[in-house]
């Protein structure tokens, strides 16, 4: 069952899963982090109130957040095709993961930033800081421990999604679990994949908590 061929296959899938998770997480933050900042800054009583921007962005985020991942995966196939030239494999899955995770990241970031004491922002305003300076020099550093904790939740969620993408030719550990465990009925391989995924989640989670604690100067 676990011959060298199979082990090579699992190793490759493991790499694919890590690649999908890391690449999608980074891309999701590239898009979602600024979105989270805009959501917080533009809301009523925020540091740069823009009610229209806030409403529209909020609606877009909610729209993409409400679409079940598997449906989104199928629905945006033309978009995926246009971006990476294929709709199967880890690369294609990454595109879908980014589209699914970016709005999620935006909300996570928004929640973290809102934890920053309004008074500290007021103090920065009283010193003559611009809204951008407040975002970069007050909100970002002050919310950092919470943002890091959030990022470990985001990456584990992306990993879970990536396993789902395996159903549709997305590659990675999820694909092996589906192809061998489900279609061929090989429960052992399926459970091995499950354990591997759980291990990755555990590592990501504790790394996030560890770094967040280490960074937090409030304790």
């Amino acid at each position: 069952m676990f011959d060298s061929e199979m082990i090579a296959l699992v190793a490759q899938a493991f790499g694919e899963s890590i690649f999908m998770t890391v690449a999608s997480s980074i891309m999701a933050y590239v898009i979602g982090l600024p979105m989270g900042f805009i959501l917080v800054a533009s809301e009523e009583g925020g540091i740069a109130p823009m009610p229209m921007v806030n409403k529209i962005l909020g609606a877009v985020v909610n729209f993409f957040r409400s679409i079940p991942f598997l449906i989104l995966l199928v629905a945006i196939m033309p978009f995926t095709q246009a971006i990476v030239g294929t709709v199967i494999g880890a690369k294609a899955a990454t595109v879908v993961l980014v589209v699914a995770a970016a709005p999620f990241v935006a909300r996570m970031v928004e929640t973290s930033l809102k934890e920053v004491d309004r008074g500290v922002i007021e103090a920065a305003e009283s010193m003559g800081a611009t809204p951008f300076e407040i975002m970069r020099k007050v909100l970002l550093p002050e919310a950092m421990p919470s943002l890091l904790l959030g990022s470990s939740i985001v990456t584990t969620t992306i990993l879970a999604y990536s396993a789902m993408a395996g159903f549709c030719g997305g590659g990675g550990l999820g694909a092996i679990a589906i192809n061998y465990g489900y279609y061929r009925g090989d429960r052992v391989i399926m459970w091995v994949m499950v354990v591997l995924i759980v291990l990755i989640v555990a590592v990501l989670q504790s790394a996030g908590i560890y770094i967040s604690k280490k960074k937090d100067k409030r304790l």
Partner: peptide, 14 residues
């Protein structure tokens, strides 16, 4: 114009 507050409002991470 400098300002100080009841709850100090210092940057906690600095």
């Amino acid at each position: 114009i400098g300002m100080i507050f009841q709850q100090f409002h210092l940057l906690m991470q600095k």
